[in-house]
Amino acid sequence: MLAEDREYVERVLAGEPEVFEQLVRKYNRLGGSIAYGVLSDFHLAEDVVQDAFIRAFEALAGLKEPARFRFWFAGIVKRRSIDVLRQRKTPRMRAASLEAGAADDGEGQALGATISSDSRRPDQSSDGSQLDAAVHAERRRQVLKCISGLDEDDRMVVSLKHMEGMSYKEIAELMELSVSAVESRLFRARKVLRKQLAAALKLDSPES
């Protein structure tokens, strides 16, 4: 994997810029997980990841260890995400009001609408399937809002685990944490999420 990245980088630098698309394919989910972890917003995260790829492309010649493109790119995404977060000047814990039962804010509605439109079933000819789709979209919206309420690092661990499907070790390498720290963060975050989502997911049994 690292050798492959090195080859891609070197080919881009040697005059094959189209090879950069392989890196885009390979790492856009990773970038998305990180950006979503910081921003709690898929649309902003997409913009940030696109921007980060452009910046990475422009700065590729300065990458000292092409084999470590993954970590370098992850750093660009994270820094860019934090910049965007600052520019927005919006408290990133907006969704924390979920626990208090606050009404949807604009962001939540937009997100819900996006999920609904993205998840249209092709066979929504019956009311039943439309209802199912609406129920599932609503549940996903609730889960995402609860994830948004997590501490930033916990949220990133959750998104790297559940969006990108990374192992504890991979997350640890990327976030420069120990494996046990990653596991602790995941455990803590899931405990919080379980508590918040107990009613929505009909979770009855105690976790421990």
């Binding site: 898929f42 649309h43 990841v49 998840s119 889960v143 979770l203 009855d204 976790e207």
Partner: peptide, 18 residues
């Protein structure tokens, strides 16, 4: 309970634009 939560978390990212 934990498996259901894990599935719900993963499913919540299904529609991500990535």
């Amino acid at each position: 309970g934990q498996a259901l939560l894990a599935r719900s978390l993963s499913t919540s990212f299904v529609d991500s634009p990535f």
